[in-house]
């Protein structure tokens, strides 16, 4: 079978579909001081999954506020700096008006995913940490 690390080089999704790949990518991102990009991407996916689970509206609101406070509110954070102002203000409105929608972070996740696909992921595939691993 194809070794996992070869599959990781096929696409960002194939990398993020494997725990060992995620671990190695996170180690690389931490070296680049931008591990929040990956955590935010997973937090958005986890938030969307809540809809399918029987979790309370209160917990959804608490989580939406936690994601907003940790990754978007602080304009100096790596995630906040990469998301478009219009996307940030949409999320702020949702949190302030308590309009907690499962898809409220989708656009922000897409923008961060595009950044990773076009920038950090290709650099990771050329990084020492990945080449040493392979």
């Amino acid at each position: 079978p194809t070794p996992p690390y070869v599959k990781w080089a096929e696409s960002l999704h194939s990398l993020l579909d494997d725990q060992d790949g995620i671990q190695l990518f996170r180690t690389f991102l931490r070296q680049e001081d931008c591990a929040d990009l990956l955590d935010f991407w997973f937090a958005c996916s986890g938030f969307r999954k809540l809809e399918a689970s029987e979790c309370s509206e209160e917990k959804k609101l608490k989580l939406a506020k936690a994601i907003y406070k940790k990754y978007i509110l602080d304009n100096n954070g790596i995630v906040s700096r990469q998301i478009k102002p219009a996307t940030k203000s949409f999320i702020k409105d949702c949190v302030m008006k308590l309009h907690i929608d499962p898809a409220m972070f989708d656009q922000a996740q897409t923008e961060i995913q595009t950044l990773m696909e076009e920038n950090t992921y290709p650099v990771f595939l050329k990084s020492d940490i990945y080449l040493e691993y392979t």
Partner: peptide, 20 residues
């Protein structure tokens, strides 16, 4: 703050793929 960080961590972990 702890409970917010715990909530975030739980959310991030819930989106992770299961160990193959």
């Amino acid at each position: 703050i702890d409970s917010e960080d715990d909530l975030l961590q739980e959310c991030i972990s819930s989106a992770m793929p299961k160990k193959k």
